[in-house]
Design a protein around this nucleic acid. Structure first.
Length: 453
RNA sequence: GAGGUUGUAGCUCAGUUGGUUAGAGUGUCAGAUUGUGGCUCUGAAGGUCGGGGGUUCGACUCCCCUCAAUCUCCCCA
């Protein structure tokens, strides 16, 4: 074992992995652009105070903080020690750390909007594909450095935006070849359930409990809610709510009879109906799921979650509507709605189902054999001309036996080799061989430049 | 943050109740093979057994600590 190592939860990506990941990134990016979203990049680090308090207590603990420089300067000693005592007491102290690594893309985006909202053309549609860092305990599919791909629309309350985002999900996963179900729900419906159960203040407890339904079963959910102080008739309502089934339309009908008396519940149902009416459920795999809650507390309307249907895996995407994105940055509430793609999990799903196209791995297309000084000079010249035609080529790094040069091409997955030896040099020809078919032909050097690889 | 499992060559893994010089397959490199690869054969390199400490005459093996991977909970992508 080597002594050099990687920090916990981080990874190197070798060529074949990078190519496959780029295939996913490029697919997502091109669809974002197709729908009129603009790119945004923000710094790897933010001021600590920008991030703290935005992700809940658990989230705050998982933020990577950056140690200030110059703490060892003698004149700062007293201050540093005092600040360190503060840290030990569980408080933050900017004398020791005032910057932190980006934890997600949403809060930096909110910060950006708060700083620039007067210049931005509203509604502002941005997408962002960058790594984020979390001091989480790594597990399968969970890392301390991973990429997020977000698209958000801010400054508009229109449900057209939700429809567009639903279509983006459908388009991306269709292009990638992954069968998914797009589960949707509405926070307003969850709020109405809490209201009807006589405990509007219990909404958080109720949503956390019912979100676990498929994991722990209905009895455990009821048990958990009893412990939170819900009574028998409230539990009955929730049980009826959880038993709603059928297709999307009949689910909404049953839901309406249960919580339709609540104004906010009616609104929530109407919003979901709007999405269903403006998308084709024949082609889009939209499934209403009233148990869907999603962890982040800032969602206020429609929420999404994407599940791969052929592989057992956590969600590979999610998002929703929020009404108060910028309020914590002293800017009047700007509403928005956004979605996110989990690239690392999408990669795992595609790898398992072997969905990556074969040509993803094509690197160098042509290898020129190196058969001597004069020969390689001629090869060099031709190689540069091919490169000008956007054909990626390389020349073997030294004169060597055929055997070695063939094996090099084989290992690197190069499909064509071009041989220019003394004979070809004299004739101004070259021999080109397709390593997949084994066929070879000798053509003039001029013809090589127009060869279709 | 709590608990469990695992860690031996680049990779996949053997290694007996603690016993002398830790093995195999695969991969790598060289040769058989001086203008036609993938096969075959021969040979070589590659490990202070994740790291540190302890018990012992003696530790890959037993104990403690630590690091990493992985699983469950929590939380999430």
């Amino acid at each position: 074992m080597s002594k050099v190592s990687l920090p916990q939860g981080t990874r190197d990506f070798s060529a074949d992995v990078v190519r496959k990941r780029n295939y996913i990134f490029n697919t997502i990016r091109s669809v974002f652009e197709l729908y009129g979203f603009q790119p945004l990049e923000t710094p790897a680090m933010e001021n600590l105070e920008t991030l703290m308090g935005k992700y809940g207590d658990e989230g705050d603990k998982l933020i990577f903080k950056i140690l200030n420089n110059g703490l060892d300067r003698p004149e700062k000693k007293e201050k540093t020690i005092a600040a360190f005592e503060n840290i030990l007491a569980g408080k933050n102290n900017t004398a020791i750390t005032e910057r932190a690594l980006r934890y997600d893309l949403t809060i930096p985006f909110a910060r950006f909007v708060a700083m620039n909202h007067q210049q931005l053309v509203m509604p502002f549609k941005r997408y962002q594909i960058q790594p984020v860092w979390r001091a989480d305990r790594p597990q399968r599919g969970r890392y301390r450095e991973f990429y997020q791909c977000d698209a958000d629309i801010v400054g508009s309350n229109s449900l057209i935006n939700e429809v567009e985002l639903t279509n983006i999900y459908a388009t991306v996963f269709k292009q990638l070849g992954i069968d998914v179900s797009i589960r949707i729900n509405n926070r307003k419906i969850l709020a109405a359930l809490a209201e009807v159960c006589g405990g509007a203040d219990k909404m958080i407890d109720i949503t956390i409990a019912i979100d676990k339904l498929d994991k722990i079963g209905i009895d455990k959910v009821k048990e958990e809610l009893t412990n939170k102080g819900l009574n028998e008739s409230q539990l009955n309502t929730i049980e009826k709510y959880l038993q709603i089934d059928g297709d999307n339309r009949s689910k909404l009908q049953k839901l309406n009879s249960l919580i339709g008396i609540s104004a906010i519940g009616k609104k929530g149902i109407e919003e979901i109906e709007f999405i269903l009416n403006h998308t084709s459920t024949k082609t889009l795999p939209i499934v209403t799921d009233f148990t869907l809650a999603r962890g982040l507390n800032y969602y206020t309307g429609i929420i999404f979650e994407i599940q791969a249907t052929q592989v057992k895996m956590g969600s590979i995407g999610g998002g929703g509507r929020y009404d108060n994105l910028t309020s914590t940055f002293q800017v009047p509430d700007i509403p928005g709605v956004g979605i996110s793609f989990g690239v690392d999990r999408i990669y795992d799903v595609m790898d398992e189902l072997q969905l990556f196209p074969k040509d993803v791995q094509t690197g160098t297309q042509v290898l020129f054999f190196n058969l001597g000084n004069l020969e390689s000079d001629a090869a060099f010249n031709l190689m540069q001309q091919l490169r000008n035609k956007h054909i990626s080529c390389e020349i073997y790094h030294e004169q060597a036996k055929f055997d070695k040069q063939f094996k090099y091409a084989d290992k690197k997955g190069i499909n064509y080799i071009v041989i220019i030896g003394s004979q070809e040099l004299a004739d101004k020809t070259c021999t080109i061989k397709n390593l997949l078919t084994g066929k070879q032909q000798t053509i003039t050097q001029d013809e090589l430049l127009d060869f279709v690889f």
